[in-house]
Design a protein around this nucleic acid. Structure first.
Lengths: 225, 225
DNA sequence: GGTATCGTTGTCCGCATGGACAATAGAGTA
DNA sequence: TACTCTATTGTCCATGCGGACAACGATACC
């Protein structure tokens, strides 16, 4: 660091040089953390720089603009979430319970914020739609495997996946954004409906969830750093 | 209107004086229209003043701050929506179909934006929660009347109301924010699930919806002005 | 007619923002 | 050592924001 004084440029501090890729990822992680806290619209470049501990001018070295930085941050978070394997090969009931389990709060707040921003941000809409369909597709795969194994029973796996996705989103709004239901109510309602839609015995998903809890916890890791 | 020049204050235009209550309502309507278009965070006082056609300084005459203006605007929209009667006294099937019918786009965009803003804005959270519970309560009333009339059948009216509310919200996100389903798919899925949850014959809600269409259209009026 | 009230205006201020940019320092290389 | 490359810094700028405010004008009341 250096400062302009009447006597010229003087060194006041030492720049902490970092490997570019690590720095870039640190910036993106800080950005998505701030989005979870303040919303896309309220995050400023100075906020992000402060969170990382660098000068705000540096962000321009890594990203062409604020919009591109935020879109990249969301994209990275999405990719990290998609990368978490969901134990697709075990008991379909366990996989289903794991898919349905309440997603961590910070994660859903970003999600809800992206919903509200998407109609006005084409890049965000693209990433959001891709991720939404990937989640739904993953659920559909679980359902189809359960049907094949005779564990589930449904006339339309596609509709069932779509309905369960919508139900999970709607209940997540009630839980995370409004606070009118707690995590236990969320799980209870979503498991009960999934059991009804897939002809499962009542309570079977709650017990499957106990075996799936380790997997469910893994879904929150990308925000922890 | 008057302008400061080197020769002093000179009149350049005539102020359009209005009854204060009408002006106040015009400002609130303009504000909520802009929120639907740009989101809460992006609406500025100058935007609102431009939409109404007044100087931005005037807004301070009616509202203490930008935050209070936006909270009042949301509150007015909420009150207008709650005031639309939903034909609670006729056939419960018609009332249910009317409740479930896809809400106008502009309305839901405000709604979704409020979800994302609520965790950071206590006044908004209060208004939003009140409205959410009022909507759910209205649905619960319809369901209880249908059960009493032997038109519906459910073991837990409260859970059913909560689940249908969540499903409608989640599907509205898929429809309005993401665009992955159209209005017809929205109606079809939501009607099918309501029929399943309330032991109604398949297709009965779609036909009830035809009788309820006039009521459903009325729900969008507050944004038309 | 005079005067108080208040709806309305344009301007000013402090501040924050996104972006541009020259200066700097450290690492690699010849 | 000298030279290049690039990661990093602090400062500067135009813009736009929310808010404060004095001036004006229409209306109502005395």
């Amino acid at each position: 660091m250096s400062t302009w004084t009447t006597t010229g440029w003087q060194s006041t501090d030492v720049a902490e040089r970092r490997p570019p890729e690590l720095r870039r990822e640190a910036i993106l992680d800080a950005a998505i953390r701030l989005v979870a806290r303040k919303g896309f619209a309220a995050v400023t470049l100075r906020d992000v720089a402060g969170e990382v501990g660098v000068a705000h001018g540096l962000l321009r070295h890594y990203f062409a603009s604020r919009d591109q930085l935020l879109a990249s941050a969301f994209d990275r978070a999405v990719a990290a979430e998609l990368a978490t394997t969901c134990d697709l090969d075990g008991d379909p009931r366990v996989a289903l319970a794991s898919w349905l389990a309440a997603t961590p709060r910070e994660y859903y707040l970003v999600w809800i914020d992206a919903w509200s921003e998407a109609p006005r941000n084409a890049a965000l809409l693209t990433a959001l739609t891709r991720h939404h369909l990937a989640c739904e597709r993953r659920l559909l795969t679980i359902i189809e495997r359960g049907v094949h194994d005779l564990a589930f029973e449904t006339t339309s796996p596609g509709d069932t996946a779509r309905i369960l996705t919508a139900l999970a989103d709607g209940l997540a709004v009630q839980h995370h954004a409004l606070g009118v239901i707690d995590g236990g109510e969320y799980d209870g309602l979503v498991y009960t409906q999934a059991e009804r839609l897939l002809a499962l015995p009542p309570g079977s998903l709650a017990s499957a969830a106990r075996r799936a809890s380790a997997v469910a916890l893994k879904r929150g890791e990308w925000l922890a750093g």
